[in-house]
């Protein structure tokens, strides 16, 4: 066994070919989780009865569950119960026609929502009470005070955490390879399967992930530069 350059280039090409699968999974999950996570955090911040207690227990417990375990469990539950549920609901799509990536979406959204909700809760703590009062005092409603005053002020506080979440999500999306979704890593391995030589595939996959990760960091850098203007002292 050794490292074959041409195998490696084949793997790299194949990895890039499947990069959109990973990118789509990462970004769609991120956007949905950001919205849901903000809602969960807001419900908990305002201590809305029943819901806030439920979320607080759920998030705490759920953060103890590794993504891989959740993924395998949900996949298994899906495989086990799909036929019965589909029959009961008169769905005629055979299980083989369903892309397992939906399990991936479900798992990643649930996990990321929990972790982002914790970041947003932290950001709530970073905003002083007087900002709410100032909003109320000029006659803004509660919702408007949130959307126009509080959430925008959270952006620079949240950015570093969100950048971590996004890169974490990019890496976690790799786990859907365990439920037969072809993404960057499994894509990179396709040529390897022909040659029975895997190292090239994994190195190629690593490179592509690394590149996307660097791109996200670049994006976050510019976002941070632009969003935190109001925090800086000195003249404009």
């Amino acid at each position: 066994m050794s490292f074959g350059i041409s195998n490696f280039l084949d793997s790299l090409k194949s990895a890039f070919l499947y990069a959109p699968v990973t990118l789509k999974l990462t970004f769609i999950t991120f956007v949905i989780s950001l919205i849901l996570g903000t809602i969960v955090a807001t419900v908990r911040y305002y201590k809305i009865p029943v819901l806030s207690q439920f979320f607080s227990v759920f998030v705490t417990v759920y953060m103890g569950l590794p993504t891989m375990v959740a993924l395998i469990l949900y996949n298994l539950i899906f495989m086990t119960f799909y036929n019965d549920v589909a029959k009961a609901l008169n769905i005629n799509i055979p299980i083989t026609d369903i892309n397992p990536i939906i399990i991936g979406y479900f798992t990643l959204i649930l996990g990321t929502t929990c972790s982002i909700s914790e970041s947003v809760r932290g950001a709530f703590r970073g905003i002083s009470k007087i900002q709410y009062e100032a909003g109320y005092s000029i006659g803004l409603s509660k919702v408007k005070t949130l959307t126009r005053i509080i959430y925008p002020q959270m952006v620079p506080i949240l950015l570093p955490g969100l950048q971590n979440s996004l890169i974490g999500l990019l890496k976690a999306s790799n786990l859907v390879s365990a439920i037969a979704v072809v993404e960057i890593m499994t894509g990179a391995l396709l040529p390897s399967l022909l040659y029975y030589s895997y190292l090239e595939g994994y190195v190629a996959a690593a490179l592509v992930y690394w590149l996307i990760g660097a791109f996200i960091e670049l994006l976050a850098y510019f976002a941070e530069k632009n969003s935190g203007k109001y925090l800086k002292k000195g003249t404009v």
Partner: peptide, 30 residues
């Protein structure tokens, strides 16, 4: 609240808005 205004001890300006935007906020939104 829409017929009164409040001036805070610690100013209570919206930290993410400029002086002009601070004054405009209630005019446009409320």
């Amino acid at each position: 609240r829409r017929h009164t205004a409040f001036v805070f001890q610690n100013y209570g300006l919206f930290a993410h808005k400029t002086a002009l935007q601070n004054v405009m906020e209630g005019l446009t939104q409320v």
